[in-house]
């Protein structure tokens, strides 16, 4: 374990939060999508995180010495299986025989709040990286 391996911990946090933000943005973009390759309306997606050992180029050498620090990764992407929202739009090309169209059940407020959370968490990881970077720089300065 070295200070350098901490950088990959925070980097894993950043990439996990970015992946989550991607899904949230996708949800917002597809809030009105009624056609998907799988058929039916778009379904809301969300990321589930899990702890996983942080990857580091030199980790294998030191792995035996100390447990690798806990990073984070996307364990699963869960798809919302709730029934789609039905709106009465008889003129719509995707309307069923009763004139109802299945729209994705997406609440933009929910996704926006989650997106803010993801942004803040991303920022926290960036702050951790810059703090660790500062510590590394301090250690290097010992040589001067």
């Amino acid at each position: 374990m070295s200070l350098f391996s901490l950088l990959s911990v925070s980097a894993s946090g950043m990439s996990a939060q970015r992946a989550r933000a991607e899904l949230l943005v996708e949800n917002l973009a597809n809030a009105e999508t009624t056609r998907t390759p799988e058929g039916g309306p778009y379904r809301r997606k969300d990321a589930v995180f899990t702890t996983q050992p942080a990857e580091s180029p030199f980790s294998s050498i030191f792995e035996s010495q100390l447990a690798r620090p806990d990073g984070v990764g996307v364990a699963d992407v869960v798809v919302d299986n709730r029934d789609p929202e039905r709106r009465y739009l008889p003129g719509h090309p995707d309307a069923d025989k009763d004139g109802y169209v299945a729209f994705p059940r997406i609440n933009p407020a929910e996704d926006m709040v989650d997106l803010m959370g993801a942004t803040r968490s991303y920022g926290a990881n960036v702050a951790a990286i810059s703090s660790v970077k500062d510590m590394i720089q301090r250690s290097i300065d010992l040589l001067r």
Binding site: M1, G13, T51, G117, A128, V132
Partner: peptide, 24 residues
């Protein structure tokens, strides 16, 4: 002291990275 600080920083970095991990 420096060693111990870096161990603690490792834990803090892990905690921040896992701020949204269920059950952590």
């Amino acid at each position: 002291y420096l060693d111990l600080l870096s161990v603690r920083q490792r834990l803090v970095a892990s905690n921040i990275a896992n701020a949204d991990t269920p059950g952590y």
